[in-house]
Simulated assay, not measured.
Amino acid sequence: MAVMNLAQERVLKVEAVVLEHQEWGEADRLLTLFTREYGRMRAIAKGVRRIRSRKAGHLEPFTRVALVLARGRDLWIITQAETLEANLALHGDLEGIGYASYVAELLERLTYEEGPNPNLYRLLVDTLRRLDENLDPPALILRYFELHILDLAGFRPELTECVTCRRLIQPEDQYFSSSLGGVLCPTCGKVEPSARPVSMNALRYLRHLQRSTYPEARRARPNPAITTEMERILRDYLTYILEARLNSPEFIRQVRQNLSTTESSSRPPEENASATISDTVIDL
C-alpha cells in the first residue's frame, strides 16, 4: 500500500537507516536510505556539508533517524532529521566501519528502491546495533545477517535436504553448490561439477543460524576453522547470486592485515620469532 501511494505524496515522515552518502553539488549530499515504511530510497540533504549545518550530525552512515522528506523535482529533499540511534562506536573503529559497510552494501545489492520490507528493516537495525555493542563475535553477527537477509530476499539456501535427489541430509560431510542453491548428499555431490565439499559441523552451524532467533543463535561458538568455512560458503553463494564480488570484504581484509602487521611489529623480538615458528608448524 505504501508503494502505491508514494507517488501521490508531497511530504513523508519516515524512520530510516542511512546506508551511505556521496557529495552532491557544492554543499549537498545524496543519501541512500533504507526506510521502515518504503524500503530503499534516495534523498538530498541540502547544505549539509556547510560547517554550520544542523542536520549533518544526524545523517552519518549507519545512523537510525527520523526524517521529514519533501518531494523535489527529481529526488526527495530532507527537511528535518533527528537521530534515534547513533551507533557511535562503529564510526571510531576501522573494522567496525568495514563490517557495517558490508551490511549496508549487501542490503543495497539485494533490494530494490521503494519496496517496503519491515522485517528486513528490523534485521538491519538489530545487526548494526549488535555490531555497535560488540558483545558477540562479528563473524556470528554477520553470518546470522547473511542467512536471514537471503531468506527475506527470496534466496534462502537449502540446507536440510539434497537439492538434487531430495533426500534428507544425514550427519556426515556433504557438498554445497551455489548454482543449485544448496546442499547435496555425497552421492549427488561427487558427480556435480559445481559442488564443493562442506563439513558436517559447518553445515550444522549454518542450519542452526538459519532456523534460530538471534538469542538462540548466539549460543553457537564454532571454532575458527568452522567459522572460516562458513564465511567461504556464504561468500561464494552471495557472489553467485549477485554476479559480482562485494567491495567491503576487501576493505575488511586490508584492515585486518594492517592490524596484524602493527601488532606483530609491537611485540618483543623473542615473541615475534616464536610466533613465526609456531605459525609455520601449523601451516605444515
Score class of each variant (00 low, 15 high):
2 A>H: 13
4 M>D: 11
6 L>K: 00
10 R>E: 14
11 V>P: 04
11 V>R: 14
11 V>N: 09
15 E>R: 12
18 V>R: 00
19 L>W: 10
22 Q>T: 11
26 E>W: 00
27 A>P: 10
27 A>D: 13
27 A>E: 14
27 A>Q: 13
28 D>M: 04
29 R>Y: 01
29 R>Q: 13
29 R>C: 08
31 L>N: 00
32 T>Y: 04
37 E>D: 01
41 M>K: 02
43 A>V: 06
47 G>S: 03
48 V>I: 10
54 R>Y: 04
54 R>G: 09
56 A>L: 03
61 P>V: 04
62 F>K: 05
62 F>Q: 06
64 R>S: 08
68 V>N: 00
69 L>Q: 04
71 R>Q: 10
73 R>V: 05
74 D>H: 07
75 L>V: 06
79 T>Q: 12
85 E>Q: 15
93 D>R: 13
94 L>V: 05
95 E>W: 14
96 G>D: 08
98 G>A: 15
98 G>L: 06
99 Y>M: 07
105 E>D: 08
106 L>W: 10
109 R>P: 14
111 T>F: 12
117 N>W: 09
118 P>F: 05
119 N>V: 03
123 L>Q: 04
126 D>Y: 02
127 T>V: 02
128 L>C: 01
130 R>D: 04
135 L>C: 00
137 P>I: 05
141 I>F: 01
145 F>Q: 02
146 E>D: 15
146 E>M: 13
149 I>H: 00
151 D>W: 13
152 L>V: 03
154 G>F: 06
155 F>A: 11
158 E>V: 15
162 C>P: 11
166 R>W: 00
168 L>T: 12
172 E>D: 05
174 Q>L: 10
176 F>N: 08
185 C>A: 08
188 C>E: 10
189 G>M: 13
192 E>R: 03
195 A>C: 11
202 A>R: 01
208 H>D: 01
211 R>P: 12
212 S>H: 01
212 S>F: 02
214 Y>T: 01
215 P>K: 03
216 E>K: 15
218 R>V: 07
224 P>Q: 07
229 E>C: 07
229 E>S: 04
231 E>S: 11
236 D>L: 05
237 Y>I: 11
239 T>K: 12
241 I>Y: 03
241 I>S: 03
243 E>F: 01
252 I>L: 05
255 V>K: 03
257 Q>V: 10
258 N>M: 07
259 L>A: 13
259 L>M: 13
262 T>N: 07
262 T>H: 09
268 P>Q: 07
269 P>T: 09
271 E>M: 07
273 A>S: 14
275 A>H: 09
275 A>N: 08
279 D>P: 10
279 D>F: 14
280 T>R: 11
